[in-house]
Design a protein around this nucleic acid. Sequence first.
DNA 1: TAATTAGTTGGTTGCCACAACATACTAACC
DNA 2: GGTTAGTATGTTGTGGCAACCAACTAATTA
Lengths: 412, 412
Amino acid sequence: MESKNTADQAFVREMNLSSVLRLIFNEAPLSRAQLATKTGLNKSTISSLVEDLLDRQLIHETGINSAGTGRPATLIEINPKAGCIVGVELGVDFVAAVVTDFMGSILWRKQVGADPAAAQEKTLDQTLALVQEALVACRDVNLPILGLGLATPGTVDLNDGVLIFAPNLHWHNIPLRKIFSEPTGLKVFVENDANAAAVAEHLFGTARRLKDFIFVFAGIGLGGGLFLNGQLYRGKNGYAGEIGHSPFAMADSLLTPCHCGNRGCWETYANQYSIIQRVHARLEVKRSSVIPALMAEQNAPLSISLIKLAADSGDQEAIDSFAEAGAAMGRGFAGLVNIFNPEKVIMGGPLSVAGDYLLPSLKQTVSKHSLPEIVQEVEVGLSAFGRDASLIGAAAIVVDDVLANPTLVERR
Amino acid sequence: MESKNTADQAFVREMNLSSVLRLIFNEAPLSRAQLATKTGLNKSTISSLVEDLLDRQLIHETGINSAGTGRPATLIEINPKAGCIVGVELGVDFVAAVVTDFMGSILWRKQVGADPAAAQEKTLDQTLALVQEALVACRDVNLPILGLGLATPGTVDLNDGVLIFAPNLHWHNIPLRKIFSEPTGLKVFVENDANAAAVAEHLFGTARRLKDFIFVFAGIGLGGGLFLNGQLYRGKNGYAGEIGHSPFAMADSLLTPCHCGNRGCWETYANQYSIIQRVHARLEVKRSSVIPALMAEQNAPLSISLIKLAADSGDQEAIDSFAEAGAAMGRGFAGLVNIFNPEKVIMGGPLSVAGDYLLPSLKQTVSKHSLPEIVQEVEVGLSAFGRDASLIGAAAIVVDDVLANPTLVERR
DNA sequence: TAATTAGTTGGTTGCCACAACATACTAACC
DNA sequence: GGTTAGTATGTTGTGGCAACCAACTAATTA
């Protein structure tokens, strides 16, 4: 587990290549001269680094800026066709895959249902079949495949690409990297779903260039992707981010029990079941809602999307239930804001479909319950990718790996 | 605010020097050959780096290990006399200073009371006088002075060494670096007290070599020093670590109001006032305690140290009050454990004088309320330095700076 | 044509890796 | 006790490589 803390010339080259590539990724278009100014590196060094990145087809010259006096600058941007990436999300009741280009644009996508009660092998076979389809799509776009990213609930051993434990799937110690790299020959990355989503927001979404932010994955539970000091924070064993189980009250009696065995966990007040419970409770008392009619019409039980539908049609019970949930969520957000003093807190995951209804009361509660010096600096917003945050994130992890180690892509 | 992300050969040298120095700091005694194995650097490179560090007198050869076959190894250790450091803690009602050697041993120490109501200038003058005394002590030990570290409550602009805001002192925008470097000519570091304490534990205390741990500074409030991914985490504006204001309950009524304006903040159940309140409440009901007698005897109001005294003499009311407070503290610790999955959580600050009474119920509550996968890996313990953690931390920050940049110390 | 800005070329410096070497001991055997 | 083999430590000299620097060419505007 001892990480290399030493440097040599290859390290210098890799670091400077990465630095230039990230700068172009974030601020393109840029000329060589601008790169030299912004990095502080020598012009000749920049020329050499740029030539290297051009050879690897990670960047390309896109035009000439002849504004102002002097020799016009050659503008450089990221080459979206640097390669394509397969991103896979293992959900509790579905499996999804995408093929994206190097800038995260979706070139292909497919999703299939999965039975949470089915055997591991079956779900893994389904997933592998989906990956094979994705590889066909990659061949069609005729780009080199940079890697396969896999987002999964639970904790992950990053070095070995092993899923250690996923409570919702009841899976233990699955060597996902091995399972997916052997039949495909691809470089495989395995990452926790909330962490993957955070990387997606960092590279392609609403947290670009931010150094410190938190992604809250709201669904059955509340999970957090912690992006701190410019990198993911995973904790000792990869469990970091279990924000949903912060205790919310001092007395054990009369509090909502949580599936973790405790009572009063934050997530019991702010997960999707809690919202459904709220609506149920309201309907007991008041019957002026369109919800029962909707349930009958769709012949479906109460769900977030159904409540959302009701809210869209102006149903006050639905709207108020979301607002209450938003406030409960905001309490926890406020705690996070106080602990982390982040630049931004992003809400994503299944519940974010109702984001427009949750956000106002959520923001208001955060303002009220965070320390004033901190809250005035923090932004609270919705994920740029909605339910797809982890899926895009799976691909984003591969992109981030290339940005960190450009020499992994061969010169051509 | 753009940090240099580029490298050159000087950077490589600095990084490798630092890496070798840190390794010796953590695992001395070591031979050159062992250093080569552990770092992965070439033997000749290690020889060159070691010679460099010897020239700077940061390390010295301390003996020969002729166990086993082959040529005996020359053992190398940190030179405690590499220099001395002045550490200063600006408390709410006191100012303290130490002079330490390079290994954090205290060579001199002095503390004076400060009036929280007094003008800033007066307190700063007091502090400066204390520093001048410390400098005399430095001259006596005849070691080069490596720097001056200053620990202060509140938020800090690290780059400029400015105290931005200290709520308990009611101070705003004090350019501490300027104030202390101009009359002394020293390199001055300013850091938040909880963060400084965390660095002390990391270098000299019970968190040596740990990558992820949390220092909880328990006193009037509850502050946190977050040491994550091998470095301090400060957040966007340096406010990170305000763990005491995590909301603890969903309903506003009937909850303890906090000085931050909210109700139900964790720290209102676990700070030193809460303990005093607990004891007061118990004494109302039951009079079999020695505490009233102690208060009369010392002609002093109820305080933590007085309650500790009572507990030491076996007073059940005092002991039970501490146990209750420990449990309340444990609830919050459990939340931190779930969020951070740290290797260790350390309790320090004024309240840690009663640590032996708080810890059993605290640990028990943490076990009960953290997720089982996480809690089985976490250690919970007391600070190695008690009330002095931030003071030692002030010096530790200077040591850490030298460990990170050995070339700052000149070759001789 | 002069000024200005962009980018390249040739040479220098300084770092680490590598391999060969020198050093200093232990082990074992006569 | 003396000799030789074996082993691990640490040093020396060479080469590769990356960034730096200064001087250059290139392309444009005024």
